[in-house]
Design a protein around this nucleic acid. Structure first.
Lengths: 191, 191
DNA sequence: GTGTTTTATTAAACTAGTTTATTTTTTTCG
DNA sequence: CGAAAAAAATAAACTAGTTTAATAAAACAC
């Protein structure tokens, strides 16, 4: 039998109460537990009606590929975070891929909408995502790449450790070459 | 008696039905009709518990001021659009200001949360805002300033016409000097 | 209307970040 | 383990966008 305990505790946390057995069954019936290998693609630009992913373990990245073929990492998601394209069920412009071997609980848009009406705190999530993206947007617009790197290092050192440098540079909106320069410069400063 | 008809028709549209008189009264009781003059500040970074604004007529901008004192326009709002800081009631990092003389219907966060449970389509709004910001983010990260200017010109020519150039440049994340160059270059190309 | 302030243009020197290419280091995997 | 592949570092030439400053044009105020 698959283990849904992390998902239960998530709903217990947001609902601020214990779940009944019926509620647990309901959750099991709408979520699908899935595992993706490192570098495995979960959805592609052009796909319709993509699912929402609550991550049990591992690390995902959502990215675009621009006209010239370059990738831009928009968001990462790790343990106990949601990731997905909120424009679903419309055709997505993004790719979702596992950076590490990752297990998730996935849910369709329609089921998501319906459990949202039961667990209204879920909509707080979308709002929180918005606030996060807004901050990130402002930071990238108004700060230098070096400052943004520092900030990421402070806010989520674990992420910096788990990601290859070229994924971080793409998240910060610079080339891997430039991030490498930044890091070299910082190392020089330190001693 | 103040005219709330635009607000009624907004709620009728999202609810997809006519409003009863009681509902209209309820709306009047939670919204406050306000007018702001050109360049008038509506809220400031540091303010707590800012309100949400549904714009009847006019044009607002929400912006930050960075460490070095430079302004960055994050969002504009015009007729029949919502604008506000979704991180409310937490302390805001943004400034909200009228670009033109503007009349709005404003609502507190707490009232907003409570009418949201009645008009659940309101939460779609937040989601739509998120999608909008995400697109804008990706565009600014992956495209040149010239392409972003073109795109704005296509998506919202009216906005370009109503805003002074230095507000547009700040929205696109470049200096007024550089936007001026882009425009000069485009004019040269055309003939 | 005309004088004053604000906004936009132009130019020139500069810098943050890119591109391409080569070398070194680290990771993967049979 | 050792070979091959992937990731990171370094260098050099380049470019998109900035800064500062001076001029021109437009908008505003009386």
């Amino acid at each position: 039998m698959e283990d849904f305990s992390l998902l239960y505790s998530y709903f217990e946390k947001i609902g601020n109460r214990e779940l009944t057995d019926t509620e647990k069954e309901e959750i099991v019936s709408v979520f699908r537990k899935e595992t993706f290998n490192k570098k495995q693609r979960i959805f592609n630009a052009g796909d319709e009606n993509t699912r929402h992913y609550y991550i049990e373990k591992g690390l995902l990245r959502m990215y675009i590929i621009d006209q010239s073929g370059k990738e831009f990492n928009l968001l990462f998601g790790k343990e106990r975070q949601w990731l997905g394209d909120l424009s679903t069920p419309a055709t997505t412009s993004y790719y979702l891929e596992a950076v590490e071997k990752t297990t998730v609980f996935s849910i369709s848009e329609s089921a998501f909408a319906s459990i949202m009406s039961k667990y209204t705190e879920l909509s707080t999530n979308i709002r929180r995502s918005y606030i996060f993206l807004q901050k990130r947007f402002v930071a990238i617009l108004s700060k230098t790449a070096e400052e943004n790197y520092e900030e990421l290092l402070n806010n989520d050192p674990d992420l910096v450790q788990r990601l290859p440098q070229y994924h971080i540079s793409s998240y910060l909106g610079v080339t891997p070459v430039f991030l490498s320069k930044i890091i070299a410069k910082r190392a020089r400063k330190k001693d």
